[in-house]
């Protein structure tokens, strides 16, 4: 009995050591490929930066922009010059390529089960796509939230922050659902949950705005009803101005 247990343990340890021994070269190959591509990316990004600086890329781009244009492409690269953005994009493309090559090298050196690579490579692509969706979604959410907040404040809406938060979370929820769907996580559960959550947010917003502006709506309906029935309004009595009356207020002109 004891010998059998000892034998079983020894065999399992042996199997684990074998797995680790075959796994480590793959990990080292992955890391090596990643480091090499990091270095290549660093060199390429420096080269791109130098070339674009020599070509005065930023100045050329700026000179093509109209001084009065309200929206410029460069607005999206906050506090970064287009040259820096281009060099960073080059660097990150190299990093992504390094990860892909690393996984492939991992597969080549890992002979125990080649199914890992078949599973990992497409999943890595999906993961990258999901991360990109999340980044784009969060950027869009922030942009839209700010747009709504500023627009609502300038329109003197008291619930400006609430509107802004609503828009932000709508976009974030949508983004999260899209990312999970992209990763094939959750399946129908995510879709269902998203539908319920999204519908809930929309219903909440509708109720909030509807209840908040109930008086406004009723006044508007009353006004349209008055117009439809063409009810005669009592004539306003015009009284001559006296000296004690305050002078008419001057009209404001901003421009």
């Amino acid at each position: 009995m004891g010998q059998q247990i000892e034998s079983a343990l020894r065999q399992s340890i042996h199997r684990i050591v074998l797995v680790l021994a075959s796994f480590l070269p793959g990990v080292l190959a992955f890391l090596f490929a990643l480091v090499v591509f990091l270095l290549i990316g660093w060199g390429l990004s420096a080269l791109v930066r130098q070339i674009l600086t020599a070509l005065r890329f930023d100045e050329r781009l700026a000179s093509r922009e109209s001084p009065g244009s309200p929206v410029l492409v460069a607005d999206w690269s906050s506090s970064n010059s287009p040259t820096l953005v281009a060099s960073r994009i080059t660097f990150w493309i190299c990093v992504l390529a390094g990860v892909a090559v690393g996984i492939s090298a991992f597969d080549a050196s890992y002979s125990v089960d080649s199914q890992y690579s078949i599973f990992l490579l497409p999943y890595f692509a999906h993961l990258t796509g999901a991360i990109l969706i999340l980044i784009a979604g969060s950027l869009l959410a922030r942009f839209l939230a700010r747009s709504v907040l500023i627009g609502a404040v300038n329109a003197q809406l008291q619930y400006a922050r609430f509107l802004s938060l609503g828009v932000k979370w709508l976009v974030l929820v949508l983004t999260a659902a899209m990312a999970l769907d992209h990763l094939n996580i959750g399946g129908g559960v995510v879709e269902l949950a998203f539908g319920i959550l999204f519908g809930g947010i929309v219903l909440t917003l509708s109720l909030a705005i509807g209840l908040g502006s109930r008086d406004l709506v009723s006044r508007s309906i009353e006004k349209s009803f008055d117009k439809a029935t063409d009810r005669p309004t009592p004539p306003t009595e015009i009284r001559p101005l006296t000296e004690s009356d305050p002078p008419p207020r001057p009209r404001l002109r901003h421009f």
Partner: peptide, 11 residues
């Protein structure tokens, strides 16, 4: 400096 989107800034 393009600290934030220019439309947002002016708004």
């Amino acid at each position: 400096l393009r600290t934030l989107n220019r439309n947002h800034l002016l708004g």
